[in-house]
């Protein structure tokens, strides 16, 4: 006999003057191999067509469907209902601007982050189409790829105590972005340049070291390790600047 699942879903449509924030309860018969993507789609198509949520690839790759699932930020399409209790509470990710129900605006947050961290390769070299590519050791390429695996789902930001207190904190996603370019020899920026970006309370020194970011990261990025490394490097840079070196 299949279970009947009870969903408590956060509802609020800011564009509807009659809407007020509340939890709404939906019952759904669990089916074989059901994911939260399938469950929410069925609730929308069979029970309430106005229910807002964001899915895209629904294969756990793109990072669109971050939400708080029974108290923990995660990617909803990766969650099978069989791994959840009979009662499931779904809330939108905090920190980000609410669009409606479970849908939030991560895009604006991340584009601001690209500007703050200057999320691109800084080089004076021009591309020459006639020349072969510059060589790179494969192990180095792989280590850059490892830091480039962030899917910008926003789970680390939603789980971060500093981000909850300071909306302009760069968060693990932003700090990891700096770590990614710092590891890339194609980027000519120095630690002094990076210090300008993250050497303050909105950057690496705002991190309280609670490290929920690493706990909830669906990509299992080594955030604890990278954030600790950046803190040491930026600390050294600060001392060098202080002593005028």
């Amino acid at each position: 006999m299949n279970r009947q699942l009870l969903f408590n879903i956060f509802r609020y449509n800011p564009q509807d003057p009659e809407s007020a924030p509340h939890l709404e309860r939906f019952a759904l018969d669990e089916s074989d191999a059901m994911t939260l993507h399938l469950a929410l789609t069925r609730i929308r198509e069979e029970q309430d067509p106005s229910l807002q949520f964001d899915f895209c690839c629904r294969a756990g790759v793109c990072g669109s469907c971050g939400m708080v699932i029974n108290g923990r930020p995660g990617l909803a399409c990766r969650v099978a209902t069989r791994d959840l209790p009979d009662e499931i509470t779904l809330l939108p990710l905090p920190v980000f601007q609410l669009v409606g129900d479970l849908s939030v605006d991560t895009g604006s947050w991340f584009r601001d982050m690209y500007d703050a961290t200057e999320s691109w390769i800084h080089t004076r070299e021009l591309f020459d189409p006639a020349k072969p590519e510059k060589r790179m050791d494969n192990a180095l390429a792989e280590s850059i790829h490892e830091l480039d695996r962030c899917v910008e789902c926003g789970c680390c930001v939603a789980a971060c105590a500093t981000a909850r207190l300071r909306p302009d904190f760069l968060g693990a996603a932003g700090l990891n972005r700096v770590a990614r370019f710092r590891a890339d020899p194609r980027d000519e920026r120095t630690d002094r340049d990076y210090y300008e970006i993250i050497g303050n309370d909105l950057g690496i020194f705002g991190c309280m070291g609670l490290l929920a970011c690493e706990d909830v990261c669906p990509q299992h990025l080594p955030l604890r390790n990278r954030l600790g490394f950046l803190r040491r490097k930026m600390g050294v840079t600060a001392l060098k600047q202080f002593f005028g070196k």
Binding site: E125, P132, N138, A141, D148
Partner: peptide, 18 residues
């Protein structure tokens, strides 16, 4: 091939020949 090399210039961490 030119586009692949340009992507390398822009920062794609392509797998490299070992």
């Amino acid at each position: 091939p030119v586009e692949i090399r340009q992507l390398a210039h822009w920062g794609v961490p392509w797998s490299r020949v070992t």
